[in-house]
């Protein structure tokens, strides 16, 4: 298999983590909006979502850091 395709597939697998992080953020924003519309436990929703969303973004960030770090620092020509 060509290196190029391998890189693309790796990139797609990495993007899954970002899809997860973004969709969870989206989900939590949606829940906070619903909570504020219904005036039902807004503060709890906001604080919990801030906590959870940060964790997912950090995790996705760490994984991307490794991905790009490994590719940038690879030996030339390989």
């Amino acid at each position: 298999m060509k290196d190029r395709t391998i890189y693309i597939v790796q990139f797609i697998t990495l993007s899954f983590v970002w899809i997860l992080a973004v969709s969870i953020t989206w989900w939590f924003i949606h829940l906070v909006i619903v909570a504020s519309e219904l005036k039902d436990a807004q503060t709890a929703s906001i604080s919990i979502s801030i906590l959870a969303v940060t964790i997912f973004w950090i995790l996705a960030g760490v994984l991307s850091y490794v991905f790009f770090g490994l590719h940038r620092n690879a030996k030339a020509g390989a």
Binding site: Q10, V66, G69, L70, K75
Partner: peptide, 14 residues
Amino acid sequence: AWGYQGTAKQKHTL
């Protein structure tokens, strides 16, 4: 493997 070759910098990143 994400292009891992065991270079010092890669190890450091990991």
